[in-house]
């Protein structure tokens, strides 16, 4: 019987002259010595000769041949296992589902961050507004209906976003009460998590006391580093820094016994010192969770990237360096853990984003990046169903697993595709590559495979 090496098989060099064979689609791994791996790597057209098969087939029952087949790294020539697996995994996307609701409580913000992809993309004549309680309730109702028709959503999420959501705190409170009632009467699952993404400057004791009463609430405060760096990155509209107000807000939460995580946007002002900033989050702020944001393109960014290629490569490496630090202390960094969880648990990570975005004026979209232009936003009527709408269908299939140009990528099944908005603004379409994110995805995949070699040979 003739065999063929899977087109999804990648060879990754690791320590001690070991090489991992990795199926980037189905996530199987077998580790070989360099010489044996080289014999396989140099087969012409991936077709394995009978002589090589005999070599692989030695060593009794648990031999290399059976392990390579089991991990889908090679397959009998007459069975196109690659094609079958690719089709099966694509089928995983065919069931329509929505698991995230973004409630944009206002599209205005009291800060003027140079990299913000929401505020900086507003047309000059844009009229800012605040969400009303009625629109908040209609967004939650729409989400509850979509969840009812969706399958496989383990933990639905409602995210309060902006602008700065706490600038509309009365409506945030009303929405939180409405969510609690919807959970109590079974319209929303009891495990629906709630997250408030805030710049932290408006948090006071009254807000902290009100938030303390909410179950299953996560708070994420944007903080880009110590005072000097943060103040450069995240100033008020008059140019003064926001650091002291953010720390005062964080202190209010701590005084009220509320745990908060942090969001840190990596840009040219903090990327070089990211490892030190990570240690500071860990040791001084006692952060239990963190999320790194990779910059999303906007035309007013004034060089927040610096050199884009340098930014992308350094950012990718720094996120990995910080993960090495965080994993020793059990700190969850969301950006890399999306990929780590997929790789470790062997599940496919289809998307990096998606869901319902409820704008302050009641229009419904898929991405807040388009809030200014209202591209990919629709005005819902009483029959509106995002699960049946062509915009959501287009975004559902915006996954590396449905984009043939990424079939040979080492990060194929753990990537998620990055930011469609960034791909659109940098490269002309949501179906193009998010090239900055891509560097991070590939570097992370290679790191995980090499780290697995170390873990598997630990103590040997």
């Amino acid at each position: 019987m003739n065999f063929k090496i899977s087109e999804f098989c990648h060879f990754v060099d690791g320590k001690n002259n070991l090489v991992a064979l990795y199926n980037a689609l189905t996530l199987g791994v077998v580790i070989l010595d360099k010489d044996t791996a080289k014999i396989l790597q140099e087969t012409k057209g991936g077709i394995i000769s009978v002589k090589i098969i005999d070599m692989l087939n030695s060593n009794g029952e648990n031999n290399l041949l059976s392990q390579l087949i089991k991990n889908k790294l090679i397959f009998p020539l007459e069975q196109n296992v690659d094609l079958q697996d690719y089709a099966t995994i694509q089928m995983g996307l065919s069931c329509k589902k929505i698991g995230i609701l973004y409630l944009l409580m206002t599209d205005a913000c009291n800060l003027s961050c140079g990299y913000c992809f929401v505020e900086n993309l507003m047309p000059s004549d844009y009229t800012f507004s605040k969400m009303t309680p009625e629109i908040a309730r209609s967004g939650i109702d729409l989400f509850a209906k979509a969840l009812e028709k969706s399958s496989g959503i383990e933990e639905p999420q409602i995210i309060f976003y902006g602008g700065e959501p706490l600038a509309n705190f009365n409506v945030v409170q009303e929405a939180l009460e409405y969510i609690a009632r919807a959970k109590a009467d079974g319209r929303l699952p009891g495990n629906t998590s709630i997250t408030i993404n805030t710049n932290g400057t408006l948090i006071n004791d009254n807000i902290a006391a009100a938030l303390k009463r909410i179950d299953n609430l996560n708070l994420a405060i944007s903080l880009d580093g110590l005072r000097e760096i943060h103040n450069i990155c995240r100033p008020y509209h008059n140019g003064t820094g926001s650091y002291d107000d953010v720390m005062r807000g964080y202190q209010c939460l701590q005084n009220n016994g509320i745990e908060a995580g942090f969001c840190c946007t990596i840009n040219r002002h903090n990327v070089e010192q990211l490892h030190q900033i990570a240690s500071w989050f860990m040791d001084e702020l006692d952060a239990k969770s963190l999320g790194f944001n990779i910059l999303i393109e906007n035309y007013k960014m004034n060089g927040m990237h610096g050199d884009v290629k340098y930014y992308a490569e350094l950012t990718a490496q720094k996120i990995i360096d910080c993960f090495r630090l965080f994993r020793e202390k059990g700190i969850y960094e969301d950006r890399i853990m999306r990929k780590v969880n997929a790789f470790v648990d062997g599940h496919i990570y289809y998307h990096d984003c998606g869901g319902i975005v409820m704008s302050p004026n009641g229009m419904v979209g898929v991405c807040q990046g388009y809030l200014g232009t209202k591209k990919y936003f629709v005005k819902p009527d009483h029959q509106f169903d995002p699960l049946e709408h062509p915009v959501w269908e287009e975004w559902q299939f915006r996954s590396p697993l449905f984009m043939a140009q990424f079939k040979n990528c080492i990060a194929l099944s753990i990537c998620g595709g990055g930011c469609p908005y960034s791909a659109d603004s940098r490269n002309g379409s949501i179906r193009e590559l998010d090239d900055i994110f891509c560097v991070h995805a590939k570097a992370t995949a290679e790191f995980l495979i090499k780290d697995l070699i170390e873990q598997a040979t630990h103590g040997q």
Partner: peptide, 21 residues
């Protein structure tokens, strides 16, 4: 010839102390 098939525990060891709550 060296053949190592990583066990589930090897995969989990990548996460070290990170527990997903």
């Amino acid at each position: 010839m060296t053949v190592i098939v990583p066990k589930q525990t090897d995969f989990h060891a990548i996460k070290k102390m990170v527990t997903n709550g």
